[in-house]
Design a protein around this nucleic acid. Sequence first.
DNA 1: CCCATATAGTTCAGGCAATAAACTAACTGC
DNA 2: GCAGTTAGTTTATTGCCTGAACTATATGGG
Lengths: 406, 406
Amino acid sequence: MRLPAPAFRESVAPGSMVDVRRSNLALVLGAIAGSDPGLHPTRAQVSAATGLTKASVSSLVLDLLEAGLLRELGLTARGERGRPGVGLALNTLRAVMGMEINVDYIAAGVLDLSGTILFKEVRECDNRGAQPDSVLAELALLAARARSTVGEQGVEVVGGGLAVPGLTGPGRARILAAPNLGWTDVDLDLGALLPEAPLVVSLFNEANAAALAELRHRPGDDADFLFVSGEVGVGGGLVVGGELFTGPAGNAGEVGHVVVDPGGNRCSCGGTGCLETVAGQDAIFAAAGLPPGTGRSAAMRSLLDALAGGNAQARAAVERAGTHLGIAVASTARVMDIGAVVLGGHFAVLDEWLKGPLLAGLARYAPGRVADGDVTVAAAGEWGAVLGAAGSALRSLVDAPYLLQE
Amino acid sequence: MRLPAPAFRESVAPGSMVDVRRSNLALVLGAIAGSDPGLHPTRAQVSAATGLTKASVSSLVLDLLEAGLLRELGLTARGERGRPGVGLALNTLRAVMGMEINVDYIAAGVLDLSGTILFKEVRECDNRGAQPDSVLAELALLAARARSTVGEQGVEVVGGGLAVPGLTGPGRARILAAPNLGWTDVDLDLGALLPEAPLVVSLFNEANAAALAELRHRPGDDADFLFVSGEVGVGGGLVVGGELFTGPAGNAGEVGHVVVDPGGNRCSCGGTGCLETVAGQDAIFAAAGLPPGTGRSAAMRSLLDALAGGNAQARAAVERAGTHLGIAVASTARVMDIGAVVLGGHFAVLDEWLKGPLLAGLARYAPGRVADGDVTVAAAGEWGAVLGAAGSALRSLVDAPYLLQE
DNA sequence: CCCATATAGTTCAGGCAATAAACTAACTGC
DNA sequence: GCAGTTAGTTTATTGCCTGAACTATATGGG
């Protein structure tokens, strides 16, 4: 059984026994959440996995059952010697919602506490330059529909997360800048998305959320990787020790603005020669001699067709993007001491043509640091941001189950 | 009174009341360590600052006194109404030692728990290609001398840290690679440096240690900055939220190997166009048309003379280094979301000529991110690594005072 | 000089959380 | 049906923090 995330919370406040209780509630819940799917651990197994005594586990499990976070299954291990234990599982009648606002769509998805997807819906719409309030209202409608749909099966949504393509913070309810939406300094009323949900809705950068989704698909606890997502811009998310690294103000991971070509073009961020100016969607299309697409799937298809058809200009454009991606990853890998890369967005779609140049770039600029097998394609696909935002709410809940007590 | 660093330790082990005790011991000790120098807080003030009751503080302080971490001063606040309190201070008869092995010297320094420097000594010697064991033995002699010197005043050294110019880990007692020493995969017997000291000696990268020293000189608790140190190579240390960011394997912050010139020269690390190939000492001297120095002070003086004398080639070399340093810092700032830079090593010495090009580079490659006033020169100077290594031991002690109990 | 007032620090009963050990519960296998 | 085995609960104990009462030590006014 996998041991769960760190238990004791950092604090400058005096510690007392309620902290011990909270820490151990998280420890128990984490042990159950992290057990292999399908294997529903018993109190005795949780006791062995966590090091807590059976008595303590019993008491903690009781609290978690009362909080509605766990449920008891039937007796397990029939056929073995001795009294069979009672299997414990996360309560699948509790759920979290992931939401996303992007350039040309809004989306919502509901995951139950075990991580099963209960609901998924996208609404295509053009949000470029749209009023934040109206987009948020639209999303609230979508969220309400999602909630009532799962509600019919008795599932309660207790919290969620929202992913947006831009810089967030401070205070986790504000978009500082979302250039592709044309939004600047927008305060969001996140509470309106899930009215009366017991937990707050938190805000994420889209690439950070997608990185979190990737984290759930990784084996092991101490994942370390750089997630790089190719979109109109180039986003990134850093996962260090199984945690999203957000930096002091919450906007770490902006790999798209690592300088890869000091003598290069001006970037939308005001800088020069950023990765985005070479490997962003518009840059690749321009270099490939293709018109920039409005709906991203259609445009991407034309690029893929060109590549498959042996179009030299298209191949050169992607190769150039790959090499420069290699430079950015090499620099980031050295600064962050990270040795694995996950490709998302169009980088995932272009994997076949991109990976060679990327590995060549890595070999040239940071030899011996990122092995071939350490460059992988995002598992979560297009739903990464939604699933990551939801998954993050899931994880906060597992790490702080006391929030749902009483 | 400043509140101290986070108290509750992260843990995957069951929490119990001893964790509460340890956390609160650290809270109390941290409050006293973090109080303004000269102001020795009383139990009542500690109680107010931490939120612990007077009863708890009394009990915790008693433990800390018995562990030899605190001492009581005379009565304070005479002249005020009411019973005067007893001032508490860190026990200045306990101390930690910072040590450094570098290319052309070894050094040791002793700090008492209040941070006062009690002893400082450098021994010049050429460690290039020397046997690690013999260098360590030499350092152990220096450490022993330091210990007996402060010992004569009744000061006991309880722990320490060692800084080395190379990559460390895993396990914090191993040098993976120290190119300028010619060392690879060296296991260090750190215990031999401070025999019978109750706390272990920890190992740091030199630039990381210097970054920690810088942290002590910063006002406020939540410092975030990138420390960049120019030596033969270019080292770096990342401080995020008042903590050294070490990355998954302990070697984050290697700003020297950020790619700043994709078409540039081969680096000693095997990469291409790393910052080090432009802004390392050898690179600057070569570009300036000066012979690479053996003793660094002498060589640096000739460069400074050339700069002051208006030598155009020397100025161009430093300007080039500054601009490219700007590129590396711009990339790092975006990835790590950091907005302040501290210059150390020869970057500090060359500040006058370097800062202009550096700021210009930052303005070009990451506009609006690092303000002019956010680029500062290291306060700790040449002793940064030693002071940082010692300071880190100090901090571990304040964060985990229970280690010295019994 | 004495006493009111104010603040510092200690003592003590109470509550809570984890532990260990004893106990009850439920199943297998002979 | 009973021994053996494992699951989970009950109970006594320990340790730590809290709040309130208490002691200690100062100032200052009459």
